[in-house]
């Protein structure tokens, strides 16, 4: 589903974020991406979503070389991805419902079908009762869950999450991990970055460990 082959990413100014990274994630697999901050976790996720492009090597998503995609084709790649951003990227000029509605508007769903899907997504993350609230009124954990609802409302095959439990206490983090596991169970491919070793202890999933842009181990469950 996701395959990196000798990927190197160097930012302008010479900083090498990723060197020679190769791995493969199969369809329906759930994998964690770990490493200290600055190890290149975010860069790796951005390469999958073609927010950044590799300097060399190839990034394949669904057998498509996303590093070579034309700008006009990017929207269609991203519609198949659900992305949970480190900084949430919620829109504070509209309520919770409309935030989750945005991906469906972009894909051109009709009104009735979208409303149904938005409520289903909000229900999944436990925010159904807050649909009229402004995201700014939500707690950090709720904002994170809202971001998840927006990422899954489109029913993507692949879910990317950048530090989804970064600023949350242990209980909230467990909640979120439970939500991810439920997606894993229905066959979604997940790639989750975290620097929080705590959330990994009781999970038996694959871990990709990055150190200074070099992939250390690819442990299997």
């Amino acid at each position: 589903m996701i395959s990196f082959n000798q990927v190197r990413k160097r930012y302008p100014g010479g900083y090498e974020a990723l060197s020679n990274v190769s791995f493969e994630i199969a369809q329906g697999e759930m994998a964690f991406l770990t490493g200290h901050s600055g190890a290149g976790k975010s860069t790796l996720l951005k390469l999958v979503a073609a927010i950044e492009r590799p300097n060399s090597g190839s990034v394949l998503v669904n057998n498509q070389n996303v590093g070579a995609l034309k700008a006009g084709a990017l929207p269609f790649l991203r519609r198949n991805l659900g992305i949970i951003f480190q900084d949430h990227k919620l829109l504070f000029d509209r309520n919770v419902f409309d935030n989750v509605l945005l991906p469906l508007q972009i894909c051109g769903f009709d009104h009735k079908e979208s409303a149904k899907r938005v409520r289903a997504a909000l229900d999944k993350v436990g925010l159904l009762k807050r649909e009229r609230a402004n995201p700014i009124a939500l707690s950090g954990g709720e904002q994170q869950r809202l971001c998840i609802a927006r990422a899954i409302v489109n029913r993507p095959a692949i879910l990317l999450a950048d530090e989804p439990t970064g600023n949350l206490d242990a209980d909230y983090a467990q909640d979120i991990m439970a939500i991810f596991k439920s997606f894993h169970q229905v066959g979604v491919t997940l790639l989750i970055s975290t620097h929080d070793a705590g959330v990994l202890q009781d999970t038996r999933v694959r871990v990709l460990n990055l150190r200074n842009g070099v992939l250390q181990t690819a442990t299997s469950p």
Binding site: A49, R78, I106, C107
Partner: peptide, 8 residues
């Protein structure tokens, strides 16, 4: 955000 989630 729209660009990130696939808006043309």
């Amino acid at each position: 955000v729209s660009k990130l989630i696939g808006a043309s």
